[in-house]
Design a protein around this nucleic acid. Sequence first.
DNA 1: CTGTTAGCGCATTCAG
DNA 2: CTGAATGCGCTAACAG
Lengths: 338, 338
Amino acid sequence: MKKKTTIHDISKALKINSSTVSRALNNSPRVSQKTKDLIQKKAIELGYQKNILASNLRTNKTNTIGIIVPRISRTFFSSVISGIEETAYNAGYNVVIGQSLESFEREKELVSTLLSNRVDGLLISVSMGTTNYDHLSNFKTNGGPIVFFDRPITMLDTPSISIDDYEASYNATKHLIKNGCKNIVHFSGFQKIALYKRRTEGYVAALTDNDIPIRPEYILESQLSEADGIEMAKKVLKLPKVDGIYSSNDTAAISAMQHFKKNNIKIPDDIAIVGFNNDPISAAIEPNLTTINQPDVEMGIIASSLLIELIKKTIKTPSEHSKTLGTELIIRQSSQKL
Amino acid sequence: MKKKTTIHDISKALKINSSTVSRALNNSPRVSQKTKDLIQKKAIELGYQKNILASNLRTNKTNTIGIIVPRISRTFFSSVISGIEETAYNAGYNVVIGQSLESFEREKELVSTLLSNRVDGLLISVSMGTTNYDHLSNFKTNGGPIVFFDRPITMLDTPSISIDDYEASYNATKHLIKNGCKNIVHFSGFQKIALYKRRTEGYVAALTDNDIPIRPEYILESQLSEADGIEMAKKVLKLPKVDGIYSSNDTAAISAMQHFKKNNIKIPDDIAIVGFNNDPISAAIEPNLTTINQPDVEMGIIASSLLIELIKKTIKTPSEHSKTLGTELIIRQSSQKL
DNA sequence: CTGTTAGCGCATTCAG
DNA sequence: CTGAATGCGCTAACAG
């Protein structure tokens, strides 16, 4: 680890003031091309590398944006991250990623370290455990702009990029009804979480619009755990004449399907299923499963672009830039009970 | 974004010199407990938060370690990352993650930005595309220590944490032989990559040791792509009397399995398969599949601990701390053709 | 277009 | 145990 060359070394070697060197290296228009060339050449010659730490301290910016997701191992999130990274890198930003693991405590810690590290902005899909947003409003006042994605939160001057849960649910349920299902179970998450509530509302609306009565015992709540999935699967088997399942809860749905499979209950020949899911696992278990495709990479690109504009203050009215992205129903053969 | 309180604010308020404040806040033993308490109290009162940027500049350290993996969406890597994060956070280090996407160019860029951002050390699983290690030796001389994981590289004074590919392959193949397989196909990756070569050697050795002839046409090379997997599946179907498959290539193997499934070729009733894989997808496709379990979280913990020791210079002989972790054969029922 | 001056906030000498 | 002084490397005012 030899001593690094600084702008002062270049300055001395060339007998040009260090501020001019700094300007030249930052390609300021206020330096003549001639001296720029001179300086650039010398910089390369001496193996100069800007000390970003010093630069950051001076400008109080880091050119870094923070990302917080529940877990990077979920396909949906790693895809979103890919979209974010691509956009950020192209705009000259670095990216740091943290996982909250659905824990509120952990999320608070992450936000706090990102704040300490002076990231210029934050992209976050809040954890399920998050009960208030003080840490986030604190980030906003002391740090920089925030853009929510995937799990929208209502917060002053803070945009959300998400999908239309209601519509997606409605369409999925309608799809099952069209294919002859009349006794459709709904796998859902906790209703106190807005996202799952809206999905349930979409399901209910689709049934109502098609004159199918709502039976509360057909709406199965659960957490996002595998054990819950097995519980749900068992409940389904006890319900009379179930002929369709609409799941808005990936994790539990997958484990439910595995449970069915182990017990030789064929899906979707016996039961038509629509899953809310981009996960390759469900596709692997049941290649013919119809799924709702969420825009993942695209969501990352949009959220990231928006955040960068907010950082650069190209935009003045953040909340007006919230966006609802469309979903797509990927219809595969055997969920059509024809 | 109001102005932040600095140690000078505390210094003034208490009429104590700022260096003492700095020392107290860093819990230096050279400050009396009494003044420490005083300062700490005031710091909280004023809502003081250390400016890490300034601290970093001064100390020329960032308390951050860089991670580079081919892609975070691979279950194996996201698990390793979990292990790394846990260990790093407990030791007071932050973590930044980059994906090379198996591209050499991208890997070089990432290493370069991590270097510019003065991460204290680097954990890397090199991309498939990487053809030389200049960027890494540059990081070592100008940045800090490196620890390789998963894909071991031979480099001066640089430890690797990886598994014993040869042994794992040998055991997997032996397992198939024990269960009566005699015509075992090997799904592999490019042989010019050391890792795949060693895996193939393990396969060959197991056959040889059991007096089964090696047939080159039973060793199928491929890249890590899905299309390749389908190609391999087709080739298998053309080979005479295949009764076992040992795969050391996750991605291709999964798509091969899906191809089998689509064509109603039952696995593993017709063909016994052993896969090299922690991926939940293959488990989902075929719950009874026997797999080689790689230590993932554990690998992260070990690599991360080692790197931190190297950063702190608690260790003087890095290369002697390379470690080969054991694998475990998870034997599930129906791959035993009994 | 270039030079001068100053300071971002902290940690580390060196004194005492 | 505490204070005074210095500078990490860069950039931003302000001159000229």
